[in-house]
């Protein structure tokens, strides 16, 4: 396997991460926020895989990213259930409306 230049991968990962964060902070739609989360996670995944490929660490990065994907799926399932319940209670999924726990 020939060595590759990690920079383009890292830049894509960083862009994905920043897009995700911006999506989470700006979206009022709960589903949108979830999508932002996915983006962040996948940006991180890309980093894992890149460093795994460019360093003598073997397959550790890939394994980690697989875990992250599984966890993300599980998280999405839970979060969608929350979203449904939230909708049942508030007849909307605008996350700004869910501030009953404020101090």
């Amino acid at each position: 396997m020939q060595p590759i230049d990690p920079n383009p991968f890292l830049i894509v990962g960083a862009v994905l991460f920043v897009c995700g964060v911006v999506c989470m902070t700006t979206k009022r739609n709960g589903i949108g926020v979830l999508m932002g989360v996915e983006l962040v996670l996948n940006g991180a995944n890309l980093n894992f895989i890149t460093f795994s490929r460019c360093t003598p660490l073997g397959l550790d990065g890939q394994v980690f990213s697989l875990f992250v994907i599984v966890l993300a799926a599980a998280e999405a399932a839970v979060a969608l259930a929350i979203a449904l319940n939230f909708y049942n209670n508030h007849l909307t999924i605008d996350v700004d409306r869910g501030d009953e726990l404020h101090g």
């Binding site: 989470m24 902070t25 926020v33 700004d96 869910g98 501030d99 726990l101 404020h102 101090g103």
Partner: peptide, 18 residues
């Protein structure tokens, strides 16, 4: 005083985290 931090606004929390 810490109580004021707990706004209940999820986007704010995310912003803080980021």
């Amino acid at each position: 005083s810490l109580r004021n931090v707990q706004t209940g606004k999820i986007r704010q929390y995310v912003t803080f985290i980021a």
